[in-house]
Amino acid sequence: MAKVRVLVAKPGLDGHDRGAKVVARALRDAGFEVIYTGLRQTPEQIAEAALQEDVNVVAMSILSGAHPHLFPKVVNLLREKGMNDVLIIGGGVIPETDIPALKEAGIAEVFTPGTPTGDIVEFIKANVK
């Protein structure tokens, strides 16, 4: 039986990952297999881990403000590796004004602080390939 596999990743230099862990736990409770790789991952590490784990979803969280640079980079690396069906979503402290550009770059949805975790689960269920 197929199971949805999600890589929860923290690109960049954030010092804590409380939010990512809360999301990881919520996704686990939704019946997904969640691969969590810890803090301070480079885009290259995230894309390679996604490939080795053959995930359906890459969920990135970032608090530092480096999202305009790091999120699109991960999207491009995944495409280069032939991972064209992966649903890529982002979250964290991200200004509303940055969201259109991120979506343009291939981030399917961006979840900002205060989002109920159930919304993320529903979004994945509705959009995963």
Binding site: D29, A30, F32, V34, I35, Y36, T37
Partner: peptide, 8 residues
């Protein structure tokens, strides 16, 4: 569901 955390 599962949390697979060995890669950390």
């Amino acid at each position: 569901g599962a949390i697979l955390g060995d890669r950390i």
